[in-house]
Design a protein around this nucleic acid. Structure first.
Lengths: 334, 334
DNA sequence: CTGAAAGCGCTTACAG
DNA sequence: CTGAAAGCGCTTACAG
């Protein structure tokens, strides 16, 4: 591999001049510049990014840690981040915490070690604030993605409250008053927001939410299946079976739907169903499920924008973005 | 940030010794070693990976370029690669070519510039062999993922031929003789293999494949919808409408299914349908589609294994892995 | 307008 | 068993 020294000697200039031509960082006589450029071509020279990064403050790379690379919504966010980063000439370092705070911490440390210019984090369920403190103390620009925190950090997520309010309105307008909420792991901020949003929206309509219809804390689809089944059975025995089920994520919806099918309940015949995130191509299949579709790709893009802004102006005021989701109304709630 | 010099002076040793302790690369007296380790702790020293990589041959990072980050199958492969890389302490640099050879080339160059230890490539549709030549001339370990090539390169994909043979057997056993094949962009090797596998399997059963029932070349779901619709219409007029449709990817299946629904054909009532790759949670929805499910996650993991093997032994014989897919038989083909 | 030289933070022959 | 020093390939004050 040719180095900057080879180029310099071939062009008959100093390495300073080569560097300045390459970076366009000071004026160089046109003819000299020309000679340098030919020498670069002749030698097939390619700047060594490692050596360059060592001297500069930047590595032109960013790190992304997602909490569940398996979920389609996260895959879309990754896609959005990749796209935006590529557009800016930034390389993307990707890691997956699989909802494990220890793995998350290790991933963050690895990314810090690699001197990424900034970090984007969709935090794991039980993630500790200490990790964010750690990043702050390294003075590394950070953006929280999807799973936000009540902290002074740039973040981008969706407006869960408004989406939930619209969904509850939609259901109650159709006469549903006993709605079962399948909300999952409430340590996950987006799920907690949906949970809280549900209770607030129901309260606003003067509707009670019996504790028996709140199905929370499940993490896997199998667990959710069991819990929903138990809730259905218990509520039926108490003579107050719900008329609608509202799931707060794709995985929760899958578990819930299977439980409904297992109980012989038809959607929408015997039970209405709506979900956040939802399934791909859901308009092609039965039941067609009413879905709150978050703009996952744009979420990823926005995270990169926030990061760039922070990189350019470290003292800019904290910005928290809430994108609006779109609700796809389908026959499952008719 | 503390440097190796700080640690050395605090421990009262040379930087050589610190380096050797850190890398466990030569014997150091236990007490000396102890002093170094305390000094590391006291200073909060963290080795600079950039400087380290500059001196070593390796960066402990690998690059992955996928052709369509939007497809669930590719998302799973990315997931598998990430998981395997993390396990080995390797950072993953991710890029997406979006089926554009120019973007693919740019992504590869960027990864080469970053001195990744190796590359995993799921090539774009129109990708040129010149790019592989370029990587070979850089002597960079390379593994082809999912989309294989008839070249002397390590690769891992699925056995499309056997899967297609099983699918055709399944359909013909049920009396289907006029089968429409929706095969997409035949420049994509996996799709071409499925296409060829179909013809071979049909020939083996002595069944003709009228050109009118081969629907190929479509790239988007919308295009596929149009083309399938046209083929259905034309074949119906000729009095030889197919009794089954076989789609070679999720996206193609989506376009085809929509066309069937649009034509008022019920699956499986009026038309059988099977697909490669398929939809997530397909057992929860109607129609339940028979699906050839490739082991996408394991494909990603295997690609990393192949890469590591190549890294350890650059002169090892080329290895080409073909994993078997599982066929999920469902009611769409009953 | 350009160059000589220091220095980024490591690793690794070389020498003792 | 350990250290002094060269060197990886750049960037960037400093000097003229």
């Amino acid at each position: 591999m040719a180095t900057i020294v080879d180029v310099a000697s071939l062009a008959g200039v100093s390495t300073s001049t080569v560097s300045h031509v390459l970076n366009d960082t000071r004026h160089v006589e046109p003819e000299t510049k020309e000679r340098v450029i030919s020498a670069v071509k002749a030698t097939g020279y390619r700047r060594d990014i490692l050596a360059r990064s060592m001297r500069r403050a930047r590595t032109d790379s960013i790190g992304l840690v997602v909490s569940d690379a398996g979920e389609p919504a996260f895959a879309d966010m990754v896609h959005g981040v990749e796209e935006a980063a590529a557009q800016l000439g930034l390389s993307l370092l990707l890691a997956n915490s699989a909802e494990d705070p220890a793995r998350e911490r290790a991933a963050v440390e690895a990314l810090l070690d690699r001197r990424v210019d900034g970090l984007i984090l969709a935090r794991a369920a039980g993630s500790s604030p200490a990790l964010l403190e750690r990043i702050r103390e390294e003075k590394k620009p950070l953006v929280l993605l999807d799973r936000l925190a009540d902290l002074d950090v740039d973040q981008v997520g969706v407006n869960n409250q408004s989406a939930m309010a619209a969904l509850v309105e939609h259901l109650t307008d159709r006469g549903h008053e006993r709605i079962m909420l399948v909300s999952g792991d409430l340590r996950v901020s987006s799920l907690r927001e949906r949970h809280d949003g549900f209770r607030a929206a129901m309260a606003k309509r003067g509707l009670e939410v019996p504790a028996g219809l709140l199905c929370e804390g499940t993490v896997t689809a199998a667990e959710t299946f069991d819990r929903v089944q138990a809730v259905l059975r218990a509520s039926a025995e108490a003579g107050e079976r719900p008329t609608a089920v509202l799931a707060c994520s794709t995985l929760l919806a899958a578990g819930a739907l299977r439980a409904l099918q297992h109980a012989g309940l038809r959607v929408p015949g015997n039970m209405a169903l709506a979900t956040f995130d939802g399934f791909t191509y859901s308009d092609l299949f039965q039941p067609q499920i009413t879905t709150v579709r978050q703009p996952a790709f744009r979420l990823g893009e926005s995270a990169v924008s926030l990061l760039m802004r922070r990189l350019e102006d470290p003292s800019a005021p904290t910005r928290i973005l809430r994108l609006e989701s779109e609700i796809e109304f389908r026959s499952s709630t008719e």
